[in-house]
Amino acid sequence: MLGSLPHAAQLVAAGLAASVLVALLIVPDRAAACAPELSDAGLGGITGDTPFDRDAIARAVPGCTVERQAGSSEGASVDILVIRNGPTPVALVFPDWTGGIFSVLVQSQALRRAGGPTLGMRFGGVFEAAAPPFCVPGVEDSSGRVLCPARVGGRLAYVFEGDWQGPDGMLPSPEVLSDWTLVAFLWRPTPFEDPRWVDVAGFDPGEGPALAARVRATVDDPPGLAKLVLYPIVLRASAGGKDEVLEIPDAGAFAAEYGRRLTQAFVSAVRDEPADKVHIDDNGAALAAGRVWIAPVCATEECVEHRSGVIAVTMF
């Protein structure tokens, strides 16, 4: 259903941070061997497991060149990787806070598509058969653009641009949007999430589901999970029929204490929980009925910035 969403500015700013670099992507494309296919699974060989690493991304898009470039978004510095077809940029790759890929912005006809709309189509043609799952208006750097996931729970979104004189943060009416142009594709390793991750729990867009996925991946790896923890942390467990409540000061202590108590039942409970069954409230997100809590925590008293991670573990 079309409509404005709370924190829409955060979603678009995070997903479309390339606005200061978009001029790179609107030069004419030239035929070359660099023509990766874009789908919900990723761009070429770029998937959710691909690190934000120039060499790894270059191997994933054979025929293309990849170079690091400094940019900015809303006044903040950000390093990106530019995928090029010869001298022509094909895509911009943005990092997340863990060293992985946060998003890939594609605004080039050089790519191949496994079906679906193509750049230059009108909004009314892309969503002719049914309304989009939800659309988000751009503000500040992304003002004048609208982001619409291709489908609920998908990793691919369409970026539209058009004329409208309304205020920042307000979604144009369906009548206005119908004539807007598809100018880019946005892919993320994690599905476009339930809005509660942002609106209720307070994560940045994409941050909560990405963190949850990393917790599931490392739940049986004490040193790996320890890297995702915000210290000090409370670890609750049972020993000899008695409940223990341990305050863990650092990663080394966490890996040791967590590793001693780790069971396959605990791993399975966290790892096998469907993503859409995670409990989300204003305290954060509780994985596997509260066995692992993750949340964004203010880094300053004013809470201008935050850090997100594991804040509590219960191993009963």
Rank of each mutant, 00 (worst) to 15 (best):
M1Y: 09
H7F: 14
R30W: 11
A41S: 04
G42I: 00
G42E: 02
P51M: 12
F52G: 10
A58V: 03
V78W: 00
V82L: 09
G99K: 07
I101C: 15
S103L: 05
Q107R: 14
S108P: 06
S108L: 04
L111Y: 06
R112D: 02
R112A: 04
G115T: 09
G115C: 12
G116F: 14
M121P: 01
F123N: 02
G124Y: 04
A130G: 01
V136Y: 14
P149I: 08
A150N: 11
R155I: 05
W164V: 02
Q165H: 08
Q165R: 10
G169R: 09
S173M: 10
L177V: 07
D179N: 10
W180G: 04
P189V: 06
F203V: 07
P205R: 05
A210Q: 04
A212R: 04
A213G: 12
V215S: 11
V219I: 15
D220G: 08
V229F: 06
P232S: 12
A237H: 05
D250E: 09
R260E: 10
T263F: 00
S268C: 01
A269F: 00
D272W: 04
E273F: 00
A275N: 07
A275L: 07
K277M: 06
H279W: 06
A286K: 10
R291Q: 11
V292K: 10
W293N: 06
A299L: 08
A299W: 05
E302K: 13
E305Q: 13
S308G: 01
V310P: 03
V310H: 06
V310Y: 03
V313T: 10
F316I: 01
